[in-house]
Design a protein around this nucleic acid. Sequence first.
DNA 1: TTTGCTAGTTTAATCGATTAAGCATATACT
DNA 2: AGTATATGCTTAATCGATTAAACTAGCAAA
Lengths: 339, 339
Amino acid sequence: MKKHVSLKDIAQRVGVSTALVSYVLSGKEREARVGQEIAEVIRKTAAELNYQPNHIAKSLKTGKSYTIGLIVADISNPFFATMARQIEDEAKRDNYTAIFGSSDERPDKMRALLDVLIKRQVDGFIIAPTEGSEDHVRYLQQLRIPFVLVDRHFPEIDTNYVCADNHGAAYQATTHLIRKGHRAIGLVAYRNQLVHMLDRERGYRQALEDHGIAAPQPAVLHVGFDRVADDLARDLPGFLGGGRPMDALLFATNTLSLEGLKRLGRLGYRIPRDLAVVCFDESDPFDFFYCPITHVRQPVAAIATRAVRVLVDQIQDGERRAEHVVYDAELVIRESCGG
Amino acid sequence: MKKHVSLKDIAQRVGVSTALVSYVLSGKEREARVGQEIAEVIRKTAAELNYQPNHIAKSLKTGKSYTIGLIVADISNPFFATMARQIEDEAKRDNYTAIFGSSDERPDKMRALLDVLIKRQVDGFIIAPTEGSEDHVRYLQQLRIPFVLVDRHFPEIDTNYVCADNHGAAYQATTHLIRKGHRAIGLVAYRNQLVHMLDRERGYRQALEDHGIAAPQPAVLHVGFDRVADDLARDLPGFLGGGRPMDALLFATNTLSLEGLKRLGRLGYRIPRDLAVVCFDESDPFDFFYCPITHVRQPVAAIATRAVRVLVDQIQDGERRAEHVVYDAELVIRESCGG
DNA sequence: TTTGCTAGTTTAATCGATTAAGCATATACT
DNA sequence: AGTATATGCTTAATCGATTAAACTAGCAAA
């Protein structure tokens, strides 16, 4: 059992040059004017030997790996896992395959992943960039490697990006809480400067302002990415029960939501009786909570498929200008904001 | 801005042959007796030019891609997403990178994925094989491509595998239900012949038998993988309320659990009052359910890291005999089985 | 002076596929 | 007959790195 069947093996067996075999098997027989009979023989022999072209050799020669590097914060986070799946499916349509890596929201890890994948000659990247990774993004631009940012992006850098309308989503969620009669509405967000997080905060504040409601002091509880549970345990009680007690909370991500809901339970809050809640993202628990949770559904599938499209377009035409795609998010109304 | 810096560029700049550069940059300067000064110059120049070795060229020459193909049922399923993340981290220790693909439990898709990844010259596979993919597994054996099966395996084929003790886990879960006083215990499982599913069923039956309890008729509700919600909607009521009504259910996977719990809610069952429940796998909702769910926690991290270890060992020594690793699962007791 | 060794470096083949260019031979056209 | 064109196939360079083998000095020993 030979380890690998190459063009050469087929060529020898048929008694022709490897060139001819290559032409036939890569569908160039018309352009290369290959004879009908010999083409048939070649095809048959290839099938007999179960020839599998060596994609690596092809890549080396053509300079195209048909591989997409996918860098997210954490592939085990359902938000990114779902996105990964959609990207996989969409990429397959164009014969692309994805290699993934998790940055854990750390710019150094992100950079390391970029370098590993650049060495592997990926044709382009789909990236949920970490905070403080502006230079790494510029680095990709210098190298002229196509990429699309998803979920977040950097307003000061002109790049492709595909994301949800975070401002609008937060605005809508906050407005919903206001309509339901809540006035002391707090936001629980990550302590970072990424635009998706800031937009959520801005959308939230804008909604309060537009409805003539003063933001609580403080209005936002900032939580560290890698210490969500601890920070919430320490800070949530004070945040909720400050000068003027909160009567509603908006959680800015699925992870924050889950930890927050757990903590609220331990603190004895009943939802929506003691506190109304809206969460960002989707999460199975939202449906299973004793009080189903009103949440902001991001169009993950649309973001993923569009990101692939934009990337593939960019790969095929490196000169095309950056695309900025923003999808509306949807407020899924359940029962966590009261009647 | 040059697209790519190669060994040649460095060689020209320094005024030596590419061989020398290669020796220095791949740490072979001792064996190749490269001069100290020139080695320094080469290293400095490489750094200046930000040289990134072309991994593809290297792979072509060495025949090693340092890439692992990961094939699971669905990367967006938290069980597999978590596994993917652990595999990513463990593989990185040995400089391996993972390419993933989702089979959707379909053997044809699995085969297609195998072929795509074989063409890409992955050094080995970690696979959660689909039902009916025995021939594809044998195909890998014929090609002498190292692989490790995870989660499931084929008893009749001698391969590496790493999985949980499904029989023991189901036995333990069922025994727990019995101890809690339940007698009419049903199992909800996928309709397939994969060993992990059969083992769960066998463990369940064995526990009943060992405790002198007759299995309900029917004892198992079989559900199609791609029609979980529909099948449950149609069959669950009859299954529960048959001749002798069920007083406890064991769900064989996380997806079945979630759909099952939803359906039970709609049917008006209160847990554990009307029905006790134990679920397989972990899932965020289990903690958030109005009645936290007793469940079987599989050692996903252990399975993933061990699978990588076994695979890497196999890659390095193709002759080593197949390893069979079975990890105990843990019953996490919550409140869904009554006091 | 010749031989032998060592250190330092280059040469060139190789991995497997792609593809421009070249070389025959056959047929068509004037 | 002589030239042009089409057909069918091969040659050989190439992608970028690896590495066995060859080569060149320089120096020591005999």
